[in-house]
Amino acid sequence: MFWSAPAPWTTADIPPQHGRTVVVTGATSGLGLETSRALVHAGARVLLAVRDTDRGAAVAAELGGAATAHRLDLADLTSVREFAAGVEGPIDVLINNAGLMAVPQGRTADGFETQLGVNFLGHFALTGLLLDRITDRVVTLSSVAHRMGRIRLDDLNRESGRYERWSAYGQSKLACLMFAYELQHRFVAAGSTLRSMAAHPGYAATNLQSRTESFQDAVMSVLNRVVAQSGEAGALPSLYAATVPDLPGGSHIGPDGIGEARGNPRPVGSTAASHDRRMQQALWERAEELTRVAFPL
Rank of each mutant, 00 (worst) to 15 (best):
V118R: 03
L131M: 14
E113L: 08
T140R: 04
L121H: 05
T135C: 12
T127P: 08
L116G: 01
F124K: 09
G128V: 02
T140C: 04
D110F: 10
G111C: 14
F112N: 09
T135F: 08
I134Q: 07
V138T: 09
G122F: 01
F124N: 03
D110N: 15
L129P: 02
D132P: 00
L121V: 04
V139T: 11
Q115W: 01
T140N: 09
D132H: 15
G117L: 07
G122D: 04
V139K: 13
V139E: 14
E113W: 08
D132F: 06
L131Y: 05
T140L: 09
L130D: 02
D136E: 11
Q115L: 07
G111R: 13
A125V: 01
D136V: 05
L131R: 08
R133E: 04
L126N: 02
L121Q: 00
L126D: 01
V118C: 02
L129V: 04
V138E: 08
N119M: 01
Q115T: 14
T135Y: 09
F124Y: 15
F120G: 02
G122Q: 02
L126C: 05
D136S: 13
F112W: 15
A125F: 03
L130S: 06
G128P: 13
I134S: 05
D110G: 10
L129D: 03
G128C: 08
L126A: 05
V138P: 07
G117Y: 03
V139I: 11
L116A: 00
E113R: 11
V138L: 10
H123M: 06
T135P: 05
Q115H: 07
E113S: 12
R137S: 13
G122W: 00
